[in-house]
Design a protein around this nucleic acid. Structure first.
Length: 585
RNA sequence: GGGGAUGUGGUGUAGUCUGGUUUAACACGCUGCCCUGUCAAGGCAGAGAUCGCGGGUUCGAAUCCCGUCGUCCCCGCCA
């Protein structure tokens, strides 16, 4: 090894030791007759001092030529800093290394930006020079935090009897779900592998194989448009267990999260995490991943206003619509324009209008108040728990539109009015998802989760009469309004699987062609099994208080799915295409 | 596919609405010189930008118009 210590290591107890340090020149303070450098490696910073009276003139001259980010090898003696010159900001701040030897291992051009958290740099520049961006303390911290998280996960699951198994990256395209990334087969002209959207089928086959407890830190690929929380490739903590029910999965996942938060952030999570059904979540928050760090719960006021003189509401209720409201504290002073902005937001999500009641001096002010009897207004006020200074926002529409638009208003106001405690980590389970959802465009039923999700066995009577009514044994883990894990108990019996396929309009032939290997496997003794897959990127993003998963991914892609550093994707030559039997059009 | 924001020396911004007192300003960085206790070192001097790209309007465009490209946020999409 070139070095004897790292740059975060030396303390007062090391004074007078002869040491060798390597690293990057982090900063330079040249006093002419005396030069200070902060030398940086992964572990920290150590001040190096070059004093011409204590070294050869040659070396001092060399030191004068050092610039930012040169990679150097320093030898010297650890010294206690003179009284009053200690730096309390550095763990190594009580000492410095008096250099006696210097070797430039590699010079560096002037960097496009400084290696410091304080400098704001456009993401475009950061991604082009990602290897420099990762030198910055924040990014280094994020990447190392991610590693520690994964390490805790592996240790925990190992302790629980799980084994990590790798599954193929080159696999088969499956219908439904996201768009696949395809890889052409050279050996089989016209045939393609698909990159896995998740190891779903393989982990179920590992259960059939008798592995009982499987996990994998698994890369998943989806060729869909990107967002702050979506990249074309992301990492799941993929888990599957045999002989379990929903409760076992919850307990495992709660144990895992508790361990992770304890070991990485020293935070004690309270378990069990609260649960709410999909229906409750939609009814009260308009979302299947509600942010429960703040209230603004929906209240259904349909029955209160159904018989009032206000025709708009009455009509909507008559046509299977609903009227729901949230009570927003302290915004009764909102101007016309501010209310217009809220209305515009509601419009974006399909609501035709936004009604409002301002509570001032105990009375309700609203352009539509005159249509309601005093006792109706009072009942609404009471139901909403509205106080002076509050404003009740009301949306009347089809249930889906009300949920989406009022839900969006809720999130917007929760953020805008600072109702959210940013330090809180609020976990909850959302359970009893519907088994199917109807695709009106294609006039067919689709799986809400995936086609291997077990139904809630209390609901199987609806298979032929009302599939939309059926609940599934699938569940999401929600953290601060983000879905961070999704899973289900799987079907392990052939006849139920066939029933699902027939509801989805997948005939026996098609099922055999697409999932034949899985269905066949189920005929050789498949244990009951289920699993869950937390998203590592989303989880660590929230834990670190970042706004985008790009901040926890070493080499992420832009919104156009491009890697600005490597310039991928790129063109390939005619020879490569010919070998793959591909002709561009 | 759609909506919105944005692009000015190496980096981050001001200037753009209201075209001309701009020879495009400021901070950081960079270069040179001075400097023995700094740690966001300090002082002095200096270099560095055809204002994303293309076209148009105009006597005159960073500024107005059209197109185009990149980046970001959102909708659709993401079992």
């Amino acid at each position: 090894m070139i070095r004897t210590h790292n740059c975060g290591q030396l303390r007062k107890t090391d004074v007078n030791k002869e040491v060798k340090l390597v690293g990057w020149i982090h900063s330079r303070r040249d006093h002419g007759g005396l030069i200070f450098f902060d030398l940086r490696d992964r572990e920290g910073l150590t001040q190096i001092v070059f004093n011409p009276q204590q070294m050869s003139a040659d070396i001092f001259q060399e030191a004068e030529k050092l610039r930012s980010e040169f990679v150097v090898n320093i030898s010297g003696k650890v010294g206690q800093r003179p009284a009053g010159t200690e730096n309390p900001k550095l763990p190594t701040g009580e000492i410095e290394v008096a250099a006696s030897g210097l070797e430039v291992l590699n010079p560096a051009k002037t960097l496009p930006f400084e290696i410091a958290d304080e400098t704001e740099i456009s993401e475009e520049v950061r991604l082009k020079y990602r290897y420099l961006d990762l030198r910055r303390p924040r990014m280094k911290k994020n990447i190392m935090f991610r590693y520690r998280t994964v390490k805790v996960i592996r240790d925990y699951l190992d302790g629980q009897g799980f084994i990590e198994v790798e599954t193929p990256i080159l696999t088969k395209s499956t219908p439904e779900g996201a768009r696949d990334y395809l890889v052409p087969s050279r050996v089989h002209p016209g045939n393609f592998f698909a990159l896995p959207q998740s190891p779903q089928l393989f982990k179920q086959l590992l259960m059939v194989a008798g592995m009982e407890k499987y996990f994998q830190i698994a890369k998943c690929f989806r060729d869909e448009d990107l967002r702050a929380d979506r990249q074309p490739e992301h990492t799941q903590i993929d888990m599957e267990m045999s002989f379990v029910d929903q409760e076992d999965i919850f307990a495992l996942c709660e144990g895992l999260m508790t361990e992770v938060f304890k070991k990485t952030l020293s935070i004690d999570l309270k378990t069990p995490f609260p649960r709410l059904t999909y229906k409750e979540a939609k009814d009260k928050y308009g979302s299947d991943k509600p942010d429960l760090r703040f209230g603004l719960e929906f209240k259904d006021i349909s029955s209160l206003v159904a018989t009032a003189d206000f025709k708009v509401f009455a009509e909507i209720i008559k046509n299977q619509g609903v009227v729901k409201a949230i009570c927003v504290p302290g915004i009764a002073g909102y101007s016309r324009k501010e209310i217009d902005d809220l209305t515009k937001l509601a419009n974006e999500f399909g609501a035709k209008g936004l009604a409002w009641f301002k509570i001032n001096n105990g009375t309700i002010e609203s352009p539509i108040a005159k249509f309601f009897k005093a006792e109706v207004l009072n009942s609404i006020k009471e139901l909403m728990g509205a106080k002076d200074g509050d404003m009740i926002l009301i949306i009347a529409d089809a249930p889906k539109v009300v949920a989406e638009s009022l839900g969006r208003l809720r999130s917007y106001l929760g953020d805008k009015l600072n109702l959210i405690n940013k330090k809180e980590f609020n976990f909850s389970w959302v359970v009893d998802f519907p088994l199917f959802q109807y695709n009106a465009e294609e006039k067919r039923w689709e799986s809400e989760h995936h086609p291997f999700t077990a139904p809630n066995y209390d609901d199987v009577e609806y298979f032929d009469t009302d599939p939309g009514q059926m609940r599934s044994q699938s569940y999401d883990l929600v953290l601060n309004g983000t879905e961070i894990a999704s899973g289900s108990i799987r079907i392990h019996r052939k006849e139920i699987q066939e029933k699902i396929f027939s509801t989805l309009g997948i005939g026996p032939e098609e099922a055999k062609e697409k999932f034949g290997f899985l269905l066949e496997a189920f005929e050789y003794g498949a244990p009951p099994h289920g699993g869950i897959a937390p998203g590592l990127d989303r989880l660590t993003t929230i834990m670190l208080g970042e706004d985008s998963i790009r901040e926890v991914i070493a080499f992420p892609k832009t919104q156009k799915a491009v890697d600005l550093m490597t310039d991928a994707p790129g063109q390939v030559g005619e020879k490569q295409l010919r070998e793959l039997h591909i002709k561009l059009r």
